[in-house]
């Protein structure tokens, strides 16, 4: 049973040290910390982090968040294990950021790290969410998902005029607790708009009870680098 859910984006710049000496977007980090803090305040039996990745998979819960794919210098000081074992494959970015947020909040309880394929169909995402909720004890769900990366000419994916209406639909759905609107998001349009969060949002829609209308709060909504970041909390108990 999902007792609370929170939504955070997963840009590499949220990870500690990745932006160098400067603290970039402290207000975004604070919003994420507030959302995770609220999630943990319900004292869940476990936390499930779900985020998009190349493939749907469950990752070892003790996986260490490793941003070396994005910032190789950061991990150079780490001692090499003496054993000749191959290094474990690093967590996908979305789960690494989620795990770092949990670590930063001091959470050491049970955690499930679940990726959902970027290409997963809406139905597959909804099913995955339902399965996660069905198996679970009192679970807090941390959903990692970014809006479109095509919000401006300076955006990573350059400007696409369809991006703002798309992000507005997502934000409005979150404001209204409108899970069917999330379930109805078009995966092809989301892919075109580089909106990485789509499968995770649809898994969220599946994880909450059908017909539920969670009470929500938007803690952050902006696209400072042309990528839309949404931070929200969802309380299904109401």
């Amino acid at each position: 049973m999902i007792i609370r859910a929170a939504l955070c984006p997963s840009p590499p710049l949220l990870a500690s040290g990745v932006t160098g000496l400067a603290d970039v977007l402290p207000e975004l980090r604070e919003a994420c910390e507030a959302a995770v803090g609220w999630l943990l305040a319900a004292a869940p039996d476990e936390v499930t982090v779900i985020g998009p990745a190349a493939a749907t998979a469950t990752w070892p819960p003790d996986s260490v968040p490793d941003l070396s794919m994005h910032a190789p210098a950061l991990n150079r000081a780490r001692p090499t294990p003496a054993a000749a074992l191959p290094p474990p494959s690093p967590l996908p970015l979305s789960l690494a950021i989620g795990a770092q947020l949990l670590d930063a909040a001091g959470y050491s309880g049970p955690r499930v790290l679940q990726s959902v394929a970027e290409s997963a169909s809406p139905d597959a995402c909804l099913d995955l969410g339902r399965d996660l909720a069905a198996d679970a004890p009192l679970t807090a769900l941390l959903v990692m998902g970014d809006g479109s990366a095509r919000r401006s000419a300076a955006a990573p994916g350059y400007l696409d005029e369809r991006a703002e209406p798309f992000d507005t639909v997502v934000e409005q759905a979150l404001r209204d607790g409108d899970l069917p609107a999330l379930a109805a998001l078009d995966p092809d349009l989301a892919r075109d708009l580089l909106a990485a969060g789509r499968p995770a949002w649809q898994a969220l829609a599946g994880a909450l009870s059908p017909g539920a209308r969670p009470r929500t709060r938007i803690l952050y909504s902006d696209a400072p680098f042309g990528v839309t970041y949404l931070v929200a909390t969802l309380d299904p108990a109401s």
Binding site: P11, P12, L13, G17, V18, T19, G20, L21, A22, V24, H70, A73, R76, A149, P156, P224, F225, G226, V227
Partner: peptide, 14 residues
């Protein structure tokens, strides 16, 4: 060299 954190990075990290 890796002896100094860069000043402010956002390129490709947003």
């Amino acid at each position: 060299k890796g002896d100094r954190p860069p000043a402010r990075l956002t390129r490709g990290l947003a």
